[in-house]
């Protein structure tokens, strides 16, 4: 199963690193794109990268609860100050890409990052 570092994610998505510039060596095993935290809470696996268009603090809370490696905001959305503060406190890297959700997921997938369905199916 292929995994990527956050540095790879940053490169592929031409993303800005908002929190966690020193944490880019962390590895993500799979990707998950969702704007519904309820779904993320129900489905996402640990060691995932969360791609979302939501930027409120609850994205970080969700990441914290689910042991998500990092959050990447799509569509050029920037997190609120409170979200940034909470992410710093919880040591959760935040990235931001100008790509839309579709493009961001597509690029990561073609670079070899699986989704949680395949990653789980193949064990």
């Amino acid at each position: 199963m292929k995994s990527m570092t956050l540095e790879d994610v940053r490169r592929v998505l031409e993303a800005e690193v908002i929190v966690g510039k020193d944490l880019l060596h962390r590895r993500v095993k799979m990707g998950c794109g969702s704007d519904l935290m309820s779904d993320v809470l129900a489905f996402i696996k640990p060691a995932s990268l969360l791609l979302t268009g939501l930027t409120n603090q609850q994205t970080v809370r969700t990441a914290e609860m689910q042991d998500i490696v990092a959050i990447c905001f799509v569509r050029g959305k920037k997190p609120t100050d409170e979200t940034v503060k909470l992410a710093q406190l919880k040591n959760i890297p935040l990235l931001a890409t100008r790509f839309r959700m579709f493009e961001a997921c597509g690029r990561l997938y073609t670079e070899g990052l699986p989704g949680d369905y395949e990653a789980t199916e193949s064990g």
């Binding site: 998950c32 579709f102 997921c105 997938y109």
Partner: peptide
């Protein structure tokens, strides 16, 4: 499948998001 994979597969078929 979840969003990430559906999109990934569509992207591989040449469907673009930009």
């Amino acid at each position: 499948m979840p969003t990430f994979e559906v999109v990934g597969k569509l992207y591989e078929l040449g469907i673009s998001g930009t």
